[in-house]
Design a binder for these strands. Sequence first.
DNA 1: TTTTTTTGTGTACACTTGTTTGCTGTCTTG
DNA 2: CAAGACAGCAAACAAGTGTACACAAAAAAA
Lengths: 211, 211
Amino acid sequence: MAERKRRKPGETRDKLMEAALTLVGKGRHFASLGIREVTRQAGVVPTAFYRHFRNMDDLGLQLVDELGLVLRRMMREARLNVLQADKLMEESVAIFISHVQQNRNFFIFMAQGLAGESRAVQEGIRSELRFFSSELSNDLRRLRLVDHLGDSDLELTCDLVVRTVAFSLTDLIGVAPDDDYQIDQIKKRTTRFLQLIFIGAANWQAESRPK
Amino acid sequence: MAERKRRKPGETRDKLMEAALTLVGKGRHFASLGIREVTRQAGVVPTAFYRHFRNMDDLGLQLVDELGLVLRRMMREARLNVLQADKLMEESVAIFISHVQQNRNFFIFMAQGLAGESRAVQEGIRSELRFFSSELSNDLRRLRLVDHLGDSDLELTCDLVVRTVAFSLTDLIGVAPDDDYQIDQIKKRTTRFLQLIFIGAANWQAESRPK
DNA sequence: TTTTTTTGTGTACACTTGTTTGCTGTCTTG
DNA sequence: CAAGACAGCAAACAAGTGTACACAAAAAAA
């Protein structure tokens, strides 16, 4: 008779989520994962899956919700260290990328999910991005770096920033996790993108609204 | 005895590719498609698949190569109509979005492939984006709109533009193909993004290189 | 024309998939 | 300590999967 595990409540649930992320990290796409495959990777019997999730979409959704929370906490802490305005972008990008490297599988999952096949997951990720964008707005307001911008223009700018950073995910998943040179290139390039955007924002009113 | 079809050479091949795109258009992710599923959608026996492709990755790759070419031709033609500088961005975005609507399934496939599971497809799409970026560079040079920018700064700007437009794909696939209002919103927003970027580019040298 | 190559078909096989059902051990609550 | 909810297990099933093989019709080459 095989041993019963049942260590802590919720442990199998976590193992299943982690197993899915592991497979994603190995190059698989989340949409192509099957229940049996995930349970196998988790070292659990297939039926155990149904104790925690209704189907793979459900797992994906819970992944976004749960890890999204963790992510927000991390980002919030990180932002406390970037209170002085100069070097703001460079540091922010560096912090973001270091988070990506620490939670590589999850971020790959996020990148996949943006065009994934579950509408719910898609929407979850989009809302996560919206959240980052609004947090960024608040930060910039607080630092009084954008006093000349109206609310809707500020929101536009932050949205573009978040998109740009999010797109850099697709660059990051294309290189080996330990290819420091390439990662540094991506970091520099993304930083320059952001500088370009902020220069645009700084001159926005003067050039586009003068009329 | 079932009739033999065999009308034109390569017809089944096209049917298979189109079938895959059709399924993608119906909300499925390319990575989750199976050979049998595609052949079924194409109205062809499963073994016929192997006459044209080694596996699904191969099909994806050929899809990028083949439709990428078509796409380039379309874009090139379209760009001939936008030779005057004013309204350049607005029109370009409008043209792009109209192409997306005409070839919706293929563009969804492209968006999926950026973070897809086949490294080869990923690289193919990335190179497609690079191509657009370099074409855009040429156009801007030709129109003499960016004389103050060095080559590498121009390239940076165009890359950011292409990324921004590409990201708008993920917005587009989130709305119904006939939801004209939403699509118009996306169009306007994307246009403003590009304006922001170009204002940044216009002030790039003056602000970031003066030192 | 005849011959060869290409392309689509039907059948077949071993394997994987999602899901159901019934059981047993363990934790939690009273 | 007893009772019941919870979580994991094994076995089973129908349905679907990728791929192999041998054959036939059409097209291309001779």
